[in-house]
């Protein structure tokens, strides 16, 4: 029992131990995605953004060009019965935000990109934090991360023209009939002349949970109080929207109403490509007031990851796979730009 082994038995047992360790190591490599089939990963999505738009150290890897703003949210308590989140009952909640244009190139002209975004962080007095990233389209063209990736590939700029190949885009949309609502939006969309009169949409659905534990799926939108004015034809100023925002905020605060759209039974809550019927009940939960803008790429928003799954108690994610993928990809973008900041001192 207690004599050390020699010879063949020793060799066999050593081999068995080696096999145990190798199996564990292989399992680890498989879990990490180093071996086996290459599933779509956050890394591949962010790599593809950088391949297409270029490498801009220190910048966000999508919606790279933006401005930090701040203000507050005035709750009107209308949504208090729907969600126990303190933001819906606290009179005034401090807000940090970021207006941006879509795309991974931080030097794009403001009006060259149809998609605009507003990301917010609301910090309520119970210590909870709510981050949300909202875009101008109310729906996405796709319902899965894999289809989103195919869409990004289809939009690869043609080296000859610098623009996506229309035939390739057409083929993509033909293969993805779920994109019908998005295509309709893109066709009808008239770009407003300002961030101030743009509306922003959560796109993904979330569940509101009230004190009794009842769940209500919603999507939310910020509806501007500033009246709509269409963007005038071609614009010379590449910082048109930024200058406009700075100019407006020097005159006074800007306001949006937070509108919750309530899903009915059977509405697609896990599919961001499918709109809900227009007659769905809405609840106006309060007013977002933005009263301060920071100089370009400075301010409190810059070093935040507006991960849409940073939610307070009382707001929960839906099972929408795109929502989970956004969270994972934002995290990869945040890690990458923080690394660039640390290694190169790269700052936007």
């Amino acid at each position: 029992m207690s004599t050390p082994l020699h010879g063949l038995p020793r060799a066999l047992r050593l081999a068995a131990i080696g096999l145990v360790l190798a199996t564990l190591a292989a399992g680890f490599a498989y879990a990490a995605g180093w071996i086996g089939s290459a599933a779509l990963s956050p890394k591949r999505i962010i790599d593809t953004f950088e391949d297409q738009a270029g490498h801009f150290p220190g910048y966000r890897k999508n919606h790279a060009k933006g401005l930090c703003v701040s203000g507050y949210f005035l709750s009107n308590r209308q949504a208090e019965s729907l969600s126990r989140a303190r933001v819906f009952s606290q009179a005034q909640v401090p807000v940090i935000g970021r207006f941006a244009i879509g795309g991974a190139n931080p030097h794009s002209a403001d009006t060259s990109v149809p998609v605009r975004s507003l990301a917010l962080q609301l910090s309520s007095d119970d210590g909870e934090v709510w981050r949300t990233g909202m875009n101008t389209p109310p729906v996405l063209a796709v319902s899965t991360p894999e289809a989103f990736y195919q869409q990004v590939l289809a939009m690869t700029p043609d080296p000859a023209t610098g623009k996506p190949d229309p035939a390739r885009m057409q083929a993509f949309f033909a293969a993805h009939p779920e994109s019908a609502a998005f295509r309709q939006w893109a066709k009808d969309y008239k770009a407003p002349d300002s961030f101030a009169n743009s509306s922003f949409n959560s796109i993904n659905a979330f569940a509101l949970v009230n004190k009794a534990g009842n769940r209500q799926y919603v999507r939310w939108s910020l509806m501007p109080e500033t009246p709509f004015v269409a963007l005038p034809g071609p614009v010379d100023d590449p910082q048109y929207l930024q200058h406009d925002l700075q100019q407006r905020l020097s005159q006074g605060p800007l306001r949006w109403n937070l509108r919750l759209t309530l899903a009915a039974a059977g509405d697609p809550v896990d599919d961001p490509s499918q709109p809900w019927p227009a007659e769905r009940r809405t609840v106006d939960a309060g007013t977002l007031v933005i009263n301060h803008v920071d100089p370009p790429e400075q301010g409190a928003c810059r070093d935040l990851n507006f991960d849409p799954l940073i939610l307070p108690s009382g707001i929960e994610p839906s099972a929408d796979p795109i929502l989970a993928a956004r969270s994972a990809a934002y995290s990869e973008s945040f890690n990458r730009r923080s690394r660039e900041a640390a290694q190169l001192g790269a700052r936007p």
Partner: peptide
Amino acid sequence: GVSMIADLSPRHT
């Protein structure tokens, strides 16, 4: 840890 960073499905969350 090693699998979640390579994952973007709802399992990641």
